[in-house]
Amino acid sequence: MVYTRIAIKIKLQGLCYKDDVMELEKLRHGTELIKRGFAKMQKGGVIMDVTTPEQARIAEEAGAVAVMALQAVPADIRKAGGVARMADPQIIADIIDTVTIPVMAKARIGHFVEAEILQALGVDMVDESEVLTPADHKYHIDKTNFTVPFVCGARNLGEALRRMNEGAAMIRTKGEAGTGDVSEAVKHMKQIQGEIRALKGMTREEMTRIAREIEAPVELVVETAQMQRLPVVNFAAGGVATPADAALMMRLGADGVFVGSGIFKAEIPEKMAVAIVEAVNNYDNPEVLAKISKGIGAGMKGISVDTIPQDQVLQTRGW
């Protein structure tokens, strides 16, 4: 990416000596190590959905490791219906200017131009997300073409490894966004962990059969079996609404948590945000969790997943 190098050079001219600029020619941007490395720095953290710079400031103040810039939180997208697209670039730019933590943003499944725009804006990670209306019903974005890393949703191991094969540097469970019902996130996390456990002790021949069954590259299946975890960072998402929900997902093996509508649809967002951050750091201590969960106001109202009509289910978008 030529423009990134130019951008750095311009910044440097006022800052440093001439001979140091020569060093830049050897810089390697957007490598797998750098993309996956960025995701690793998010581990043990909470990433919060925000729609305004003011919300982004509240999230940063509470201790979020990153914010996800959106036009509307998933609960409102669900309510509004219609076509959900990438957020207004002006809002994203304002959020980028407001906080020092990384800013992520969502692009529609398959909409590589939205992703390019987000990259050009300086977004730190793109979420190719089923929460938005898909732009392509056959292909996800070829994420290897980008300097910016991607996170993608998955319901099972096959889906996770297919996304990785397309270049995703981070996976999150799909759950069912905008519901405040954590049950689908639990289901997807347990499904992925169970499939990984089942690979233990398998021969290469058996793993080849599994790879065919789950429609994933055999090399990634083998790597997953050896590591006994997904080879990239794996967060929980889709329905996390309380400190207890966040702690539950950590107990199930998530590396961290995305909270969408759960913060700014809560009665007192500031308190809910701090409590969820602390819950992720204390997920294995029920006494501390009890203390954290007191006096923080009501969580988002939410809707039970069973009552959602099939055509309004978000997790079946993508494949």
Binding site: T4, A7, K26, H29, L33, D124
Partner: peptide, 15 residues
């Protein structure tokens, strides 16, 4: 300086 080398797209590896 917190993000002295820029945002994620400017992140790099080098000898």
């Amino acid at each position: 300086n917190r993000n002295a080398f820029g945002r994620q797209r400017e992140s790099f590896e080098t000898g």
